[in-house]
C-alpha cells in the first residue's frame, strides 16, 4: 500500500527560481506572437506600408480609447451594452440550465422539448432579430431578447448532455444508501453536470456578446455596438477600433471571470485545467 506524500522529496521539488524562470518563459512564449504582430502593425502603419486610414497604428487606437474614456463617451455606452448583455445572458442561460436539467431528469419534459430544440437549434438566431424589432420596437428590449435567445440554446443543450453523461451507478448507489429522489438530484445529478454546464455557459457567453453587439448595429442608437456602427458610417476609423478593443476586453474579462468561478467550484475536476 502506498503512503501519502504530503510534500515532494527535496530532490524532485522544483527550486523556486527555476519555477519562476519556467513560468516567465511560458508567458514570453504566449505573449511574443501577439506583441510581435502589434509591433509589425505599428511599424507598417507609421512607415505607410499599410493605409493608416484603414489600419491606424495601435498606439493611436489606444490613445483614442483613452480619450473616449476620459471624455466620458465610453462610460455610458459601455454601461448600457453591459446591462443589455448581462440581462440577456441571465434571461437566456438560467432558463437554459433549468430546462437542460429538467430534460435530463424528467422523461416527459425530454419527450416534449427534445424535438422542439432539435428543430430550432440550426436556425441562426440572429435571423429572428427583425421579428423582435417588430414585436418590441427599437432599443434595449429586442437586443436583450436576441441575446437571451442566443444564450438559451448552448446552455440547454450542454446541461442536458451533462446530466445524460452521468455515471448511472451513482444514482443507484445513492438510492441504495438512503437518498430520496430529490437528494439524488441535489447531491448527485446537479453537481455531476456542473462541468459540462460551465462549458455551455462559456460558449453562451461568447456567442451572446457577438449577438448583442450585432443587434446594437441596427437596433440601438447607444451602446458600444452602436458606436462601432456609427463610427464606420461617419468614417472615424480610429474610434471604431477603440470601441472594438473595448468590447473585446469585456469579452475576455467576462470569460476569465467565468473560468475562475468554474475553477474554484470544480477543483476536483481534472478537465478544468485542460479547458483553460
Amino acid at each position: 500500500m502506498n503512503t501519502p506524500a504530503p510534500s515532494l522529496p527535496a530532490a524532485v521539488a522544483p527550486d523556486a527560481t527555476g519555477a519562476w524562470r519556467a513560468r516567465g518563459m511560458r508567458m514570453l512564449i504566449a505573449t511574443a506572437p501577439v506583441a510581435g504582430a502589434l509591433a509589425l502593425w505599428q511599424i507598417a502603419a507609421v512607415t505607410d506600408v499599410i493605409d493608416r486610414s484603414f489600419f491606424p497604428p495601435p498606439t493611436r487606437v489606444l490613445a483614442k480609447l483613452w480619450e473616449l474614456i476620459v471624455t466620458g463617451q465610453m462610460g455610458p455606452n459601455m454601461a448600457v451594452s453591459l446591462q443589455r448583455f448581462l440581462l440577456g445572458f441571465l434571461l437566456g442561460a438560467v432558463p437554459g440550465v433549468f430546462f437542460g436539467l429538467m430534460m435530463g431528469w424528467i422523461k416527459a419534459v425530454r419527450l416534449v422539448l427534445d424535438p422542439i430544440i432539435t428543430i430550432i437549434y440550426p436556425i441562426p438566431r440572429i435571423a429572428i432579430l427583425p421579428l423582435f424589432l417588430v414585436i418590441f420596437g427599437l432599443g434595449s428590449p429586442p437586443i436583450v431578447a436576441i441575446t437571451a435567445l442566443i444564450c438559451f440554446f448552448p446552455a440547454v443543450v450542454t446541461t442536458y448532455a451533462g446530466v445524460r453523461g452521468l455515471d448511472p451507478n451513482l444514482p443507484a448507489m445513492a438510492r441504495n444508501i438512503g437518498a430520496s429522489r430529490l437528494q439524488v438530484m441535489t447531491k448527485i445529478a446537479l453537481p455531476a453536470s456542473l462541468p459540462v454546464m460551465f462549458a455551455g455557459l462559456r460558449l453562451s457567453l461568447g456567442l451572446a456578446l457577438t449577438g448583442e453587439v450585432a443587434a446594437e448595429f441596427v437596433a440601438a442608437s447607444n451602446g458600444v455596438g452602436a458606436e462601432i456602427w456609427r463610427s464606420w458610417q461617419i468614417y472615424r476609423i480610429d474610434e471604431m477600433y477603440a470601441n472594438i478593443v473595448a468590447i473585446s476586453a469585456v469579452g475576455v474579462i467576462l470569460s476569465y471571470v467565468l473560468l475562475e468561478v468554474q475553477r474554484r467550484l470544480l477543483s476536483w475536476d481534472e478537465g478544468v485545467e485542460l479547458t483553460k
Partner: peptide, 13 residues
C-alpha cells in the same frame, strides 16, 4: 446496503 463491483465513489467528494 450494497458494496458494488466498482467502488462507485462520487468523484467530487
Amino acid at each position: 446496503v450494497m458494496v458494488w463491483q466498482e467502488p462507485t465513489l462520487i468523484p467530487w467528494r
